[in-house]
Amino acid sequence: MTLVLDALTVSPRGGPSLFPPVSMTIAGGEMAAVMGPSGVGKSTLLDAVAGHLAHGFAMQGRVVLGGREVTHLPPEARRIGLMFQDAVLFPHLSVGDNLAFGLARRVRGRAARRAAVEAALDQAGLSGMAARDPATLSGGQRARAALMRTLLAEPQALLLDEPFSKLDAELRDEMRAFTRDHVARLGIPALLVTHDPDDARIAGGAVVTLRAA
């Protein structure tokens, strides 16, 4: 599974490109990083890859995932997981139901789905927290729950939008390792957007620096 960004750039309608075209190929299990000063369009780049570009923005170039061009697919059909700075768990659902929301449809039957959610919670050190209100979790617990929710959807690639920047130093190291291990284990390409050089270094993959066009 490989994620290819082919001469990808974004421009406001009728305006110049936000940044020069980006081309990168991320292999399965690799965690690449995009760096750059704030406001240069790092998050916009992720939006383009994930398919969430706001109205009024046009995208040039292609996004190819595992040989399948996804450039014109709606976000839900791309099979690209997205992790945010805050965990963005659904506030109306319990922790377990958040994971069940993500769990792929392939897993059928109440008991099997429940077991899959429980197993994922165990893996994330959240055993027995299925019924909890996400608002009562700590920052680290929320981040891990969000990652498990994303992974249960069986994405073929993972995008991370400054996912560690709000955690304190110790938790940040733990989450980086946790995320990297899962990416390596699943063998999917991951693309991290960050302004923290440590994030980019620890990711271990290629690093692209965006500069304003």
């Binding site: 082919d6 001469a7 020069p20 980006v22 081309s23 990168m24 292999a27 040039q60 170039g61 993959g205």
Partner: peptide, 16 residues
């Protein structure tokens, strides 16, 4: 791994 920085695109940017 092949990664190109923004300044050295893999392919010339197609006007696509």
């Amino acid at each position: 791994t092949r990664a190109r920085s923004a300044q050295q695109p893999l392919h010339p940017p197609r006007a696509r």
